[in-house]
């Protein structure tokens, strides 16, 4: 039983961590247009822009399976920096049937991450806890590794700079990244980074057999309220299964989130 509980915890943690990483992903990258940069310097530019702090975002999450069937959910994320780490809340807004379903994570003073799940139909919350895996994030085409690693390219990968390319309308740096960990699902990652604002516009993930596994495409690039450039349309395509996940960023805000969002009382509201 102990064991099973641990597995559950791992799963749900993956979901919540994933949501954190997603926010990171959305807010990746801005910087000055320095000219002759090394691969690592380019990565550092991406790294340096990683989101830390407080704020909220509303997104539409569209999953499209290999048969072209679509499912769409609207979600809100809230994040708040605390003395022990961060508090985060993920809430389903639509469709109506699942609206009000929430996940809450709180880093406590002992360094442990506490998690709660709330299903309105059950009318009560359940506590959960654990650590992350390679599992797919919320049944999408993103795995935790992919989402998480976007913020950690410089530390987790050896980078090599290839010849610059014109990718669609953008002048890009092209990087080839090799994971340092033997546990990675990937043998290589190839990334096209828009020179002007250091936004990755295309990322290709190659599996252990060297075959193209997934492609991440960032589109609809524009500055957010704080002036940082970010993609408002993110597509992850699984080349093996033909399924896709599309994230449309509807709204972002750097406004601090009130404390009471991260309470059990709010969860049940």
């Amino acid at each position: 039983m102990q064991n099973l509980t641990r597995i559950v915890q791992r799963r749900v943690t993956a979901v919540v961590r994933g949501s954190l990483a997603l926010v990171l992903l959305l807010t990746l990258a801005f910087g000055a247009g320095a000219q002759e940069l090394t691969a690592d310097e380019i990565l550092d530019e991406l790294e340096g822009t990683a989101f830390v702090g407080s704020g909220s975002a509303t997104i539409e999450l569209i999953t499209i399976n290999a048969r072209g069937q679509e499912r769409s959910n609207r979600l809100a994320f809230y994040r708040q920096e605390t003395a022990y780490g961060a508090n985060q809340l993920l809430e389903y807004l639509s469709p109506a049937d699942v609206a009000g379903t929430k996940f809450l994570t709180v880093d406590d003073e002992s360094g442990e991450t506490l998690m709660w799940l709330y299903l309105p139909a059950l009318g009560r919350e359940r506590r959960i806890a654990g650590s992350a895996t390679q599992d797919n994030f919320m049944g999408t085409d993103f795995t935790f590794e992919e989402i998480g690693s976007l913020g950690n390219f410089a530390t987790d990968f050896d980078a090599e700079r290839l010849a610059d390319e014109k990718y669609q309308d953008w002048d890009t740096y092209v990087l080839r990244l090799t994971p340092q960990s033997a546990d990675s699902k990937y043998s290589a990652v190839k990334m096209w980074v828009w020179k002007e604002h250091f936004v990755p516009v295309r990322v290709e993930f190659y599996n252990r057999q060297g075959k193209l596994d997934k492609v991440l495409i960032n589109e609809d690039l524009r500055p957010d309220a704080s002036g940082r450039w970010q993609p408002y349309l993110i597509t992850m395509r699984n080349e093996n299964t033909g399924s896709r996940t599309v994230i449309r960023v509807l709204e972002t805000s750097a406004e601090p989130v009130p404390d009471d969002y991260f309470t059990l009382r709010y969860l049940r509201r």
Partner: peptide, 8 residues
């Protein structure tokens, strides 16, 4: 599980 459900 005491915590919730698990697909495992």
């Amino acid at each position: 599980t005491p915590w919730g459900i698990e697909v495992a």
